[in-house]
């Protein structure tokens, strides 16, 4: 099937904001949502539901898959009054997190609503994640071992 480059790019963008919404802490998503000046009405297509995703690893780190264990995941799907649908799949058991992720996903797909959430929710959550990642990466770098190499010279020949 030929790949539609426009849709492909739109898919990548959507993957990115869904990732940001999923990796955010539930409290951050709820706070960002409640700080919005206008919040569109939406109805549930799928009420939030908690279940498990079986996490797979790779044998040896890069080989074929093996089943490692499960993680809790909550999913939801909503429809805006303007018709856009959004989904949320988020680690953990926070139903509100999944539902709001779905609402933001729907808004990001609605040209009229996207400016409302793009900066105030998605970019805000992305910044918080980048900051956490950066702090951890700097702490990790501060524990990197600096080896002193003793230069051994041969004795007089």
């Amino acid at each position: 099937m030929p790949v539609d480059p426009v849709n492909e790019m739109a898919g990548d963008e959507r993957r990115q904001w869904l990732s940001i919404l999923a990796k955010a802490q539930p409290g951050e998503v709820i706070a960002a949502w409640e700080d919005l000046s206008e919040r569109p009405a939406y109805s549930a297509l799928r009420a939030p539901e908690t279940g498990l995703v079986l996490v797979r690893g790779r044998m040896g780190g890069a080989g074929d898959a093996f089943n490692m264990g499960e993680m809790t995941v909550t999913r939801a799907a909503v429809r805006l009054e303007s018709g856009e649908t959004g989904i949320g799949y988020v680690a953990g058991r926070d139903r509100r997190h999944a539902e709001l992720a779905a609402a933001v996903d729907a808004m990001m797909q609605a040209p009229a609503l996207r400016p409302t959430v793009e900066g105030a929710v998605v970019a805000r959550l992305a910044r918080a994640q980048a900051e956490r990642r950066d702090t951890a990466a700097r702490k990790a770098a501060a524990t990197k071992v600096d080896f002193f190499t003793m230069v051994r010279t041969r004795g007089p020949q």
């Binding site: 995703v53 089943n67 490692m68 499960e70 990790a140």
Partner: peptide, 23 residues
Amino acid sequence: YRTTLPRFGASLPVETEAMAVRR
């Protein structure tokens, strides 16, 4: 507890080489 939850499916294999390494 885990036996009370439905399973949505399996993940793609995690890529540990891409890990944000703390140690």
